[in-house]
Amino acid sequence: MLKNSANRYGKVAIILHWLIALTVIGEFGLGLYMTGTDYYHTYYQTMPLIHESVGITLMFVLIFRSIWGWINIRPTPGAGVGVWEQKASKSVKFLMNTLVLLIIFFGLMLSSSDGDSITVFHLFEFPAIIHNLPNQEDWSVYWHYWLSWAMMGLALMHTFGALKHHFFDKDETLRRMLGLPSVRP
């Protein structure tokens, strides 16, 4: 089933979840790596192009997921998931979404600083959003960097939460997001 049901995530939600997770982690790793390489790295020029192209694509995917979320029902949490856990996971998910969008925003602000557009996979040009603000490139890169670390912290909490449900509570939470069949009838 593509769409969510009352207690299961649909294929679209599951694929989007893992695609976004891998992309966010990949972008973090690439960003960290490419800013630390020296001038003679073979991909010194191409890594930022890929990082930016993937980032802008991710932005569109996130927008699509928001729309998909609105037009789908939200599966109710599985049995045995406490109220405080629901609240905590909801806050973490909300924060992660907000953070990724903010990280992309500051990345865009950095790349927009001198008014040039961003080439997305050599397919199209994403125009500069705002430029010429005082010290725009400096504070943009600052927030882009530190919010990315904050995001990784939240992703770690999110991962620990999922593993706790799977191995300690032995409930359906992680299996549902992996699209695995229910173990209990």
Binding site: L110, D114, E137, D138, V141
Partner: peptide, 8 residues
């Protein structure tokens, strides 16, 4: 130097 990332 007229290039935001180079300036950074």
């Amino acid at each position: 130097t007229r290039h935001a990332k180079r300036n950074v």
